[in-house]
């Protein structure tokens, strides 16, 4: 029998959104266009047009090694060229941001190759080869996983995901890396670590509240879908909790 992954439990819209983001067979809805040069500017790892720095010669020029893993795994574009490992980090507001740290890690592990994600309560960092990173970033920024106001790229000083939004609906950012322009569009004025950019990078208009409520992957009892409205999810969480608690005592589920 062929195994079909379920990706996650739940009957609510939040659970459905989570499954949709995780499933690599579903193409994520493209919401905005951000050029490659703009992404390079926000990331701040290299200047636009600058060659990729490498940490080893291209794999084709390296001597042959008798390694079964090399025969098994096809290198990514970045690994093939010997690129450096660089990172991108996202902070997602708890006010119905389209994605959230754990969800990001799950989705990226299903969709991307050669990545090393780090998941924290309010931010999620992903490391990979620079060439791959820029490609993955364009997916993460241009699709429905990003909202210019509720999600932002923050390499350091990330505080803000659990705070109230500011007056203009933006997530709090102590470094004010992105600002809301008078035309209602969000512009990055600093790169992800807070160094001012030579020019502003436009990432588009924030998505409206109704859209966010329908597309968020976060349960929120006040501004979105409460977890208690999804009994299937609660049952799953309780089962995981019980098994984790009993782990040291050789857990065995009762046969029904």
């Amino acid at each position: 029998m062929k195994y079909t992954p379920q990706y996650g439990p739940g009957t609510s819209i939040v659970a459905e959104n989570r499954r949709r983001q995780m499933n690599p067979n579903i193409e994520l809805q493209k919401m905005r266009k951000v050029t490659d040069e703009d992404i390079i500017l926000i990331l701040g790892h290299r200047a636009p047009g600058e060659a990729f720095k490498s940490v080893h010669p291209p794999i084709g020029e390296l001597p042959e090694v008798d390694c079964p893993m090399r025969k098994l795994v096809k290198p990514t574009e970045g690994a093939l060229h010997g690129d450096r490992v660089r990172y991108v980090q996202f902070a997602d507001s708890m006010f119905n941001a389209p994605s959230q740290p754990y969800q990001r890690t799950y989705a990226e592990m299903y969709r991307f190759r050669g990545i090393d994600p780090g998941t924290l309560s309010g931010r999620q960092i992903v490391e990979c080869r620079e060439r791959d990173l820029e490609k993955y970033c364009s997916t993460l920024i241009e699709t429905e996983m990003f909202d210019p106001a509720r999600v932002s790229l923050r390499g350091a000083t990330v505080h803000g995901h659990s705070l109230r939004l500011s007056e203009d609906g933006m997530q709090f950012d102590a470094l004010q890396r992105c600002i809301m322009g008078e035309d209602g569009r969000v512009k990055y004025v600093k790169d992800q670590i807070g160094v001012p950019l030579d020019r502003q990078v436009d990432v588009g208009k924030p998505l409206d509240d109704d859209w966010l409520r329908e597309h968020t992957t976060m349960f929120h009892s006040l501004v979105g879908t409460p977890l208690r409205e999804d009994p299937e999810y609660i049952e799953y969480l309780q089962r995981i909790h019980t098994l984790r608690t009993k782990y040291g005592f050789m857990p065995r589920e009762d046969k029904k």
Binding site: A156, T157, G194, V195
Partner: peptide, 9 residues
Amino acid sequence: IPYGPARGM
């Protein structure tokens, strides 16, 4: 800037 590579700017 309190943290990161740009600390002190």
